[in-house]
Structure formats: structure tokens, C-alpha cells
Amino acid sequence: MDLNAVREVSLAVNATHRFIYFAPEAVEEAAKLGVTDRGPAYFAFRSAAMGAVPWQVALAAFYNFSPRSVQPMTGVWDAASPEQWQAARFVVADRSLRRGGVRLTADRIAEARSLIDRVVAGADYAGKTLAAANASVALPSDPLVALWQQITVLREWRGDAHLVVLADNRLGPCDCTVIQTATGRLPTVLMRATRQWDDEEWAAATARLVARGWLNADGTVTDAGTAAREQIEVETDEHCAALWAPIGDAGARRLASLITPIDDAFTAAGTYGQLR
């Protein structure tokens, strides 16, 4: 596989999947299940495919969140079962896709499924906890939502692979968050609010990265840090190359082009303003 093709389709998959975390419909559907706090609802929706796991398992699977951000999900399975949360997540996806004005023809959806289904079916799920859990979920009847669920499987597959690379590079949960914000991949304000590492933990992670030469003393990224963070993405691409082999470079690029209109619609609607 051409790693450029792997990166291209991976970016498209991530971008197409992400609206679910910003949709107001998620707040509304969670409230119907008795959870009004957005944090615990996020973890319930994303963990549902794994079953009624304790918060410690969600923490392990999501990696870069602090324990204090995940522990409040305790009790979400008492409010509603994982099956109810998964069903509600599909409702969120369906409502969001309709509100966002996503228009994919039946032929386009069918072509995308002909490619993505081969990848999902041929994937090696060893060590891919969230991907395997999502692959076990029965697909919904709506063709567009079913396509989105297959996209979710592959988004989580790369995420699971990425955690292996982070561990290999001795980047702990807070450290990887600090370098991610320092390189501008996600806003610091958003990451501090959602991952909830405190000032002491953030400072300690920064100090470790300064010692590695990846950050300057003021927390800004060095050239070495930028290169190291990109190398982590390259290593993740290398890990993912075998995943996309069933459809090859051309198939991966074609899939990316087929699903990109989903992200285009949400971007045009201003869904991701907080990411700027």
C-alpha cells in the first residue's frame, strides 16, 4: 500500500465519522435515556458497543482521557442498557445526517459499501478493542447510517492502532495530549476541557516532553517535536497498511472520495467551529 493512500482514506474516515460528537441530537437523545451530563453521555454512546463495561475499561480504551473525566460515567448503564445507548446513537446519526443535508445517492452508498465492507470483513481485530466491538454491532436498516457504522469500525481500528504506536513511543495519556495540542492538531482549550488533566499533570507532561527535546520550556513545539509527532502518524499509517490491502490504493482513494461529501455537509453547516 502507498502510505499516502492510507493517510488519505484515514483522514476521510475520521472526518466523516466525527460529527456524532458535536451533534446537538446527541444531547437530546441522551436526555431521553436519563443522562443530561454531556461527558458521561459521550462515554456511554462510544462505549455501548463494548457492553456494560466499567469506567476503567472505557478509560483504557480511550487512552488520552484522565480518570476524572471518565469516572462520572458510573451509572450510565443503570440509566439505560448498552443496547439502548447503541440504538440511540444510531438515532443521533440518522437525525444528524438528515439535518446536515447529507445527500448521497443510493448508487454512491452502494459503491462505498462494496469497498468498505471488504475492508471490515478482512480486518484483523487482534488488540483492536473498539473496532472489534463496533464490528460486532448489527447494522441498522437505513443505508446511510449503516455506511456510517462501517466507517465507525474503521475509524476506531486506526484509533486502536494509534494507541499501540503511542505506547511504543513512550507517550502516556497526558503526554500525547500535550504534544497534540502543541502541534496544533486540536485546540488546547477543547482538549483541556474534555480530557480534564489538571494543571500539575499538564505541567509534568510538558516537562517530560521538554526533556525529550520535543517542546521548548514555554510549551511551544520544537522542530524535533513536530517531526516526532508526524513520525507517530507515519508509524500508524504503516500499521494500517494491511487493513486497506483488500481494496488497494485505488479502492482506498475511491472510498475517500465517495464519503467526503458527508464531512463537507457538516463543515459547511458550521458543525466544527469549536475546532478552530
Rank of each mutant, 00 (worst) to 15 (best):
D218N: 15
L130Q: 08
M191Y: 03
T236I: 11
I179Q: 00
A167K: 14
S10R: 01
L147R: 01
A167H: 08
G101D: 15
T105N: 06
A79W: 05
G159Q: 01
L190A: 07
A106V: 14
W202A: 02
V9L: 02
D199H: 15
L139S: 13
L275W: 04
W148R: 00
Y63T: 01
A182F: 06
A133C: 08
M191D: 02
A23F: 06
I259A: 02
A48Y: 09
Q56F: 00
A250E: 14
A207T: 07
R185I: 12
T194Y: 06
R108Y: 04
L59Q: 08
P40H: 10
S47I: 06
C240H: 13
L255G: 05
R68F: 03
V234K: 05
A23M: 05
T226S: 15
G51Y: 04
Q231A: 01
I116G: 04
W148E: 05
D142M: 08
Y21I: 02
L154M: 09
Y63I: 04
V234P: 07
E28K: 09
D78S: 14
P40T: 12
A87N: 08
A15L: 09
V145N: 01
L243S: 01
L104M: 13
M191F: 07
Q149C: 11
A256S: 12
E29T: 02
W197D: 11
V57W: 03
P67W: 06
H239I: 00
A252D: 02
D198C: 06
E201A: 15
Q56C: 01
S257K: 10
G225M: 09
D199E: 15
A121C: 07
Q84Y: 08
Q86N: 10
E29R: 07
T74H: 13
G51Q: 04
E201M: 10
W244H: 02
S69Q: 10
E111S: 04
V137H: 10
D199M: 12
L163M: 07
E230V: 08
W202M: 03
T129H: 05
W214F: 13
L97V: 12
K32S: 06
S69F: 12
P140C: 02
F43I: 15
D2M: 11
G248T: 14
T16S: 12
A58E: 03
E230Q: 12
A121L: 11
D160N: 09
D168F: 01
A23T: 10
V165N: 00
P246N: 02
T183F: 08
Y21P: 00
